[in-house]
Structures are given as C-alpha cells and as structure tokens.
C-alpha cells in the first residue's frame, strides 16, 4: 500500500487505530510532523539509528535479519532490558512484537506537505490482545516532539 494514495483502502494511520481497537488498553498518540512523508519516514523507519533517539523507552536496536518487509531485531531498553522483536516494516508502517513488548508506528502524507503520524505500544498481557502502556501519558507526546526535532535536524 502506498502511503499517499487516496484510493488505498486504508491508510497506515487509520490502520494503527484499527489495531489499537482490537488490543485492550492500547493508546494511540497521533500528531502532525511538519515535513514531507519521505523525510519523516527516513527518521521513523531508521530502526538502528534514529528510532532509539525519539522513542521513549528504546535505547538501541540491532536488526538481525530482514526478509522483504519482515524483520527480526534485538532491542535494548533504557532500563537495560534486552528483547528480540519480530515484526514488519514498510514505508508508513512498522509493527514490532517481542514476548513482552509491542511497538507500533504509522505515518501518512496529509496532503498539505506535512505528515500525520501515530504511535502506540506497551507491555503485552499474556494470552490475550491487551497492552499496558509504558510510562506516563506525556511520553508519547514527548516522542512526537523529539521526532519533529530529529526530522528538522535532517532538513
């Protein structure tokens, strides 16, 4: 699915809302980054680089292998925990899942030259589609602010 195609059945940000609707406790933080989609996604999708600089709980990510849009990665949180994530990444969409954590990101061009982005994630509840959000309610907002800064830094 292209991210700026008005005929696409479901853009990635709407898609993230659908995922959150099916996961009890998932919160979606949505905002607009004032930059074109390609520039924004070059930051959001840079898992081994920029990702750890704007996400609140990730310090570093190492991609172990990729096969098309599927990937496996080793992540280290700010609190020192390490986890192996499996997931999918493609322009505008990233969904990563470890045994204990979920990270979801989406972005779509908003038609005015800016980019609408959405984030979700948290600690998994075993045996069911449910999450307990990590950190405070402010943290995803701070992540969006940091994302804007990182994008501006690439201008």
């Amino acid at each position: 699915m292209t991210t700026d195609d008005p005929t696409a059945p479901l853009d990635p940000v709407r898609r993230l809302h659908v995922m959150a609707a099916g996961i009890r406790g998932a919160r979606v933080t949505e905002g607009v980054v004032d930059a074109p989609f390609d520039r924004v996604w070059s930051v959001m999708g840079d898992l081994e680089g920029e990702f750890g600089r704007f996400q609140p709980d990730m310090r570093s990510v190492r991609v172990l292998h990729r096969d098309g849009d599927r990937l496996a990665a080793l992540a280290r949180s700010r609190y020192g925990m390490r986890a192996r994530f499996d997931g999918v990444i493609r322009p505008g969409w990233c969904w990563l899942q470890s045994r204990f954590l979920v990270v979801g990101m989406a972005a779509v061009a908003d038609g005015t030259g800016a980019t609408r982005v959405a984030l979700t994630g948290g600690v998994r509840v075993p045996g069911r589609a449910a999450l307990v959000p990590l950190g405070t309610r402010r943290e995803p907002r701070l992540a969006l602010a940091r994302l804007q800064q990182r994008v501006d830094g690439r201008a």
Binding site: L10, R15, V18, M19, G22, I23, D86, G87, V88, W95, Q97, V102, R124, V125, P126, G127, R128, A129, A130
Partner: peptide
C-alpha cells in the same frame, strides 16, 4: 490468542 503480529498480518 494475543499475537499482535498475527493481527497485523490479518489486517
């Protein structure tokens, strides 16, 4: 069963 990656694939 709570596999959110399967949810993404199902979507």
């Amino acid at each position: 069963r709570g596999d959110t990656l399967a949810m993404s694939d199902l979507l």
